[in-house]
Amino acid sequence: MDVANSTWLWISAAPVVFVVLLQAGLFLRRAWKNGKEMGLSDEQLETGLRTGIISAIGPAIAVLAAMLALIATIGGPVAWMRLTVIGSVAFELPAAELGISQLGYGFGDDGITETAFATAVWTMTLGGIGWLLVAALGTPHMEKARKRIVGGRNKLLPVVTSGAMLGAFAYFVSGEFTSGAPEMGSAAVGGLVMLSLLKVADEKEIQWIREWALGTAMAVGLVVGMALHTVAGGGW
């Protein structure tokens, strides 16, 4: 599918990235100016910027590793646009999968059509604007909304969020479990590697392990999937 990596797609993906840069630039300049007027020292402002930059390097490289999965499935330009701005791997991958599954395909199927690819792009685009619209229109009212919605049930919110995420990803994992032995192996091992790495990171308090947990889980899962494919074929 040459369309997915075509020059036109690169060109069409670039403007939104520039808007994000523009917003970051405007906010940075204004925060710097007002910060000084509020009595923050040059040193504090510089420390804030430097820490933000340094702390972003590790996670950004980790995002790059996960981006390979999106490049493999929906091509470079869309993967680039969705992950430099707007989304995260945890949303974009499921959204793309939901898009192509509308036409009965799964990732890695032979002969995924241009139409299925376009459906995935539309699904990711439309699905991603939910957050953008809530943030664009809702941010000034967030304090009030928060009080009204959460009320006295402050602790229920994380429960509902986790329930929703777990339900959604249980669905995606189930799809992998039922599509074949290599997929099932990859998903199960990916989960186990993630669990063990996060456990080690928590116990020893090593931040970089946490940042690299997803990348490592991906790599090990990929190898297990390939091995099972070689040994046992597709499974069921």
Partner: peptide, 25 residues
């Protein structure tokens, strides 16, 4: 292999990440 087996590992890993806090759920 990349097209087929990276994605399942990511789904499994993210599920595990959220599941850590609430294993019963």
């Amino acid at each position: 292999a990349l097209e087929s087996y990276l994605v399942p590992a990511i789904f499994g890993a993210i599920f595990a990440q959220f599941g850590r806090d609430y294993p019963k759920v």
